[in-house]
């Protein structure tokens, strides 16, 4: 029986498609087959490659001070033009990719590990553990991320990447923990979990061997979401001037462009290129997220087929009743 079979005939409880979540074997393949996530993977993959080969293609020290070459429009010599200090923007953008991607990935990883462990643990244990985790997530959920980060950035002496990662992860995990706990709760009472219990499986194996594999798509989605939110928040803070001014990053390039009123002088390039890099990365990650949603939810898959790819990107998803 195939997942794509029309299921109107079947009673809801027996609908195979609605019950089948994304499985581990072959899910990267499924993501590659989905047009949205494929596009996303291409975009993000491009940024990763750029970040990896950045030292080879950055033509000069990106913070070099060269007033003779200041405020130059894009040319063969300076592909993305230069800043008012005469630094090469192309080099800043390609090296900045390293910071953005590493920061996003690490914050995403940390938040996901926290959210998964606490969320699933809470759901499966229930009782006091659940209450405690719930309380903790609620506390973290009401903390406003950006103001907190502004305050922390203003107070901490070392506004290093490490600090940013930890703070971002700590403020973003709670939302994901909530979602993952919810999903684990619904899985916990499914018959196959009870069946594993009847078979004599230990709690540890039920949680990690039976429940978790059914949450892979949700966990991956959590990771991607935290990834791009962190990336945006970080760039935003830097743009506001709360970043480390000695470092190279997309946010810093934007910050300097703003501080030196580049636009007032008709210079579009210090904004356009780092901005474009941000857009490409975030768009890529969003597409991957949409793709994960689609391949793990057959209903969305049908929705898209009916409404066409472009419209489905623009319009909000109408969940079938």
């Amino acid at each position: 029986m195939s997942q794509l079979q029309p299921t109107i005939e079947l009673a809801p409880a027996t609908t195979p498609a609605a019950r089948t979540r994304l499985r581990i074997p072959g899910w990267p393949a499924l993501l590659l087959r989905n047009p949205k996530s494929r596009a996303g993977i291409v975009l993000v993959g491009f940024m990763v490659i750029v970040a990896l080969i950045a030292p080879l293609i950055s033509v000069s020290n990106p913070t070099d001070f060269n007033l003779l070459a200041a405020r130059q429009a894009p040319s063969w010599h300076h592909l993305f033009g230069t800043t008012d200090q005469g630094s090469d923007i192309f080099s800043q953008v390609v090296l900045g990719a390293r910071r953005s991607l590493v920061l996003g990935a690490l914050a995403g990883l940390l938040a996901t590990v926290l959210a998964t462990t606490l969320g699933v643990l809470a759901a499966y244990s229930g009782g006091v553990v659940d209450e405690a985790v719930n309380f903790l997530t609620n506390v973290f959920l009401v903390i406003p991320t950006i103001p907190l980060l502004v305050v922390i950035s203003a107070y901490l002496k070392s506004r290093s990447m490490g600090t940013m990662i930890v703070v971002l992860a700590l403020t973003l995990w709670a939302f994901e923990a909530r979602i993952l706990r919810g999903q684990a709760l619904s899985l916990k009472n499914r018959d196959f979990v009870l069946a594993a219990k009847v078979a004599g499986e230990s709690t540890w194996r039920i949680v990690f061997g039976e429940i978790m594999p059914n949450m892979i798509s949700r966990i991956a989605a959590a990771f991607v979401l935290v990834f791009y939110v962190s990336l945006l928040v970080d760039a935003g803070l830097e743009f506001l001037g709360l970043g480390d001014t000695t470092h190279v990053s997309w946010g810093m390039t934007l910050y300097w462009a703003q501080t030196n009123s580049a636009v007032l002088q008709g210079e579009w390039w210090p904004f356009l290129f780092p901005g474009l890099a941000l857009v490409i990365t975030v768009l890529g990650l969003t597409l991957i997220l949409a793709g994960i949603d689609e391949v793990s939810n057959p209903r969305l898959r049908d929705e898209v087929r009916r409404r066409g790819f472009l419209r489905s990107l623009v319009l909000p998803v109408r969940r079938a009743a």
């Binding site: 409880a13 499985r23 196959f192």
Partner: peptide
């Protein structure tokens, strides 16, 4: 179990 669609782990 009653429901053969629910009693087997879809990921296994």
């Amino acid at each position: 179990f009653q429901d053969p669609f629910g009693s087997l782990n879809p990921a296994k």
